[in-house]
């Protein structure tokens, strides 16, 4: 019981060490910085999706995406990413509770989700390239289709895929620290886990929009 109280006191230490800001409250400089990065990254994705919308709206011919792209498979990939967002939330929770075993476990589950998503994307790319959907030239079932379909598809999903890859590498770096007890031992800050969590949720959030605009519409 006593050790529990000690753990609780250790837990409280890093939380109170961040000075209260009149505008940002308890949010650390790292968190504000990560949010500014996420906002500008969101604008990058926004620009790509707007360009896609304008190119598609002004095209004389555009294939129905669901005729070419595998909606069921991508829906499963979307669900995998949503699952990994949940495991990431649990990882952050575990770090705040100083639960090293829980933190390592949930980080591993999140990384596995990211790798699985990337695997599905690689499989999808290979299948599409074999079927004739290239970056610069597109044919589908023997007929030429607007090459912009392939260009915009690979540009948007590829940009997102690179974010997933970066997120997985980022998570692996945090996992390495977590295994050494870097974020769960007394006096240490769990903030890096929260920051990687913000980035990972952003990757999930963007995919929700990409899935709708590129695949479903």
């Amino acid at each position: 019981m006593d050790s529990g109280h000690v753990a609780a006191a250790d837990h409280a230490a890093p939380q109170t060490s961040v000075p209260e800001d009149p505008h940002f409250g308890k949010a650390s400089g790292g968190k504000v910085g990560m949010w500014i990065f996420i906002a500008q990254d969101g604008m990058s994705f926004g620009g790509l999706l707007f360009a896609y919308g304008i190119l598609r709206a002004t095209a004389t011919e555009w294939p129905v995406p669901s005729d070419i792209l595998g909606i069921a498979l991508t829906a499963i990939a979307t669900f995998i990413l949503i699952c990994s967002s949940l495991s990431m939330v649990f990882a952050v929770e575990a770090a705040e509770k100083r639960d090293q075993v829980g933190l390592v476990r949930w980080l591993m589950v999140t990384i596995a989700g990211g790798l699985l998503f990337l695997g599905v994307q690689v499989w999808e790319y290979m299948h599409l390239v074999h079927a004739g959907i290239g970056f610069a030239e597109c044919t589908w079932e023997g007929e030429t289709v607007n090459s912009l379909f392939g260009s915009t598809f690979y540009a948007v999903t590829g940009f997102h895929g690179m974010h997933v890859t970066a997120g997985v590498i980022y998570l692996m770096c945090i996992l390495r620290g977590a295994m050494k007890g870097k974020y769960t031992q007394g006096g240490t800050s769990s903030s890096p886990v929260e920051l990687v969590g913000l980035f990972w949720h952003f990757v999930d959030l963007v995919w929700i929009l990409v899935f709708t605009f590129i695949y479903l519409l």
Partner: peptide, 23 residues
């Protein structure tokens, strides 16, 4: 939903929410 609950924007100060709304 992801931004509000998973990214904890619901519990952040308004200034951080304004930054998040930049896109």
């Amino acid at each position: 939903l992801v931004a509000t609950y998973f990214m904890h924007l619901k519990w952040e100060k308004p200034w951080l929410r304004w930054i998040a709304l930049m896109p």
